[in-house]
């Protein structure tokens, strides 16, 4: 088997297994960690295709931003801090295994130069172009229609989020001076007539 094929199958197996564990593990932190692994492996596969921009974007956006946010939310949900700290040692083995796997994957893909990975033939975009340039060029020429529409989807997301969460103006307790000067005595207090209660 060619080395590139081996790396592909290696990464794919981990990707599928991680995906399965995301939905089967009962612990939300475990699930989130496996999702990180899945993203990382997917970016490895992209790297294998020499789509380095997409690979880096996936890691930066999904692993760096989305999943960290996700882990924060999971943390916020669990208010019991002691229980969270208790978990540290039990999470450590799994966490370190995932970290080691990622390091190994990075080594496999980035170290491809020394292992003869680059000699294999791959669909070349165009001569001398960087990946970013190729993606950018396509996005603003051939794919401009879906690209613009994707931005509308984001706009709809914003509109929907505002429509579903905004609850009107917050009630302000500050006093309006212009109304305050017009206040009359009878607005300030009221005399109530109350029948006297008898004592038995």
């Amino acid at each position: 088997m060619e080395f590139r094929t081996f790396v592909f199958y290696f990464l794919s197996t981990i990707l599928v297994l991680a995906g399965v564990r995301v939905i089967t593990s009962r612990n939300p932190v475990h699930a989130a960690l496996f999702l990180v692994l899945a993203f990382f492996t997917a970016s490895g596969i992209w790297m294998l295709l020499q789509a380095e921009f997409l690979a880096i974007a996936l890691v930066l956006i999904y692993v760096g931003a989305v999943m960290v946010l996700f882990l924060f939310v999971v943390m916020m949900l669990d208010i019991n801090l002691d229980r969270l700290r208790e978990g540290f040692w039990s999470y450590l083995p799994l966490g370190s295994i995932i970290a080691l796997l990622m390091v190994a994957e990075m080594g496999l893909v980035l170290g491809g130069n020394y292992l003869g990975l680059m000699e294999s033939s791959l669909p070349q975009t165009s001569v001398g172009d960087s990946n970013v340039q190729a993606v950018g060029r396509l996005m603003f020429t051939d794919y401009v229609y879906p690209f613009e529409l994707a931005s509308i989807i984001l706009l709809v997301g914003i509109v929907a989020a505002v429509a579903l969460t905004q609850r009107g103006k917050r009630k302000n307790k500050a006093v309006d001076p212009s109304q305050q000067v017009f206040v009359k005595a009878k607005d300030r207090y009221r005399v109530l007539q109350m029948p006297a209660e008898k004592r038995d």
Partner: peptide
């Protein structure tokens, strides 16, 4: 006339409907 356009249109419709 493109699979990406079909999908994007569908998502635009669905997301608006969910909201």
């Amino acid at each position: 006339n493109h699979l990406v356009t079909v999908y994007i249109g569908l998502e635009l419709l669905s997301l608006s409907l969910y909201a």
